[in-house]
């Protein structure tokens, strides 16, 4: 389902069912090139798992999708729309802060370290962005936030501050917070890596539930089991390039590339 080769310059449109299309994405930090030409395509409703050793650029790539990092070359389109730039007369124009913010609202993101707002309760964390972005009135946002927290199994923790919640609970609040903006795409950056082993399951369950509901998700993870069970496609990255991709079961059972084999041998 995920095609590594995409005709350069072909613009994904909302109609063709492609949610994310990356073409030859390059990214450097100073003189270090972290991404060396990433091509990938994620279709609407698909769960795409990004695997790879640390330092392979998977998190950086994820952060490029919502323009937390500026790419140096290539194009990223989400739902047919170029991220961070506008193409006019064959030239790229940087977007204004405000336009970038508007694009980001359609893309939810969940971080490894949760990054909940510690001075707000769980409910306030979830209700804050919809109110500030002028989407909803306070009362409506609070109702929906409560419903979202209910959905991730935290209906009884609305008034708790993040410091009073376990890691797994915090990460579930973070997922609810991202969902509150009603995104069409969710990005997960190692959502279970900072959790105690016994708390990983509750977060993965929420993610599986989301996947079943047809949410388009890109998940950077080390959870091979999750990738195999929930993933529609698997991308194995190493050293800034896509080494191998395909159906998760296929790649995990019969890795073709040596680097994939070496990595899987370590984590399985």
């Amino acid at each position: 389902m995920t095609q590594v080769t995409t005709p350069a310059g072909a613009a994904g449109t909302a109609g063709d069912g492609v949610m994310v299309r990356a073409e030859q994405v390059h990214k450097s930090f100073g003189s270090v090139e972290v991404l060396k030409g990433i091509d990938l395509e994620v279709r609407s409703g698909e769960v795409c798992c990004l695997l790879g050793p640390s330092g392979s650029g998977k998190s950086t790539f994820l952060r490029c999708i919502n323009h937390l990092e500026k790419i140096n070359a290539g194009r990223i389109r989400v739902d047919g729309e170029l991220i961070g730039y506008r193409e006019r007369g064959g030239k790229l124009h940087e977007m204004r802060e405000k336009e970038i913010a508007t694009q980001r609202r359609a893309i939810g993101m969940v971080f490894q370290r949760f990054n909940l707002f510690p001075h707000m309760t769980a409910l306030q964390n979830v209700a804050e962005a919809p109110v500030l972005s002028g989407r909803e009135r306070k009362a409506a946002a609070r109702d929906r936030a409560a419903a979202l927290l209910q959905r991730v199994g935290l209906g009884d923790k609305l008034g708790n501050y993040p410091g009073q919640l376990s890691g797994g609970q915090q990460q579930r609040v973070a997922i609810a917070r991202a969902l509150a903006m009603q995104p069409k795409l969710m990005l997960f950056d190692e959502p279970t890596s900072a959790l105690d082993p016994e708390l990983v399951g509750e977060v993965l369950d929420v993610m599986k539930d989301l996947a079943r509901d047809g949410m388009t998700m890109i998940v950077v993870t080390h959870e091979i089991g999750f990738a195999r069970e929930v993933g529609d496609s698997l991308i194995f990255m190493d050293d800034g390039v896509v080494v191998e991709s395909g159906a998760p079961r296929e790649v995990i059972a019969n890795p073709r590339h040596d680097r994939t084999k070496a990595f899987l041998a370590k984590v399985l």
Binding site: N66, L68, E97, K98, A101, T102, Q103, R104, R105, I107, G108, M109, F111, N115, L116, F117, E128, A129, L132, S133, A174, R177, A178, M181
Partner: peptide, 9 residues
């Protein structure tokens, strides 16, 4: 970063 990702100004 989290606030940016939520689309806040």
């Amino acid at each position: 970063e989290a606030a940016q990702a939520l689309g806040l100004s």
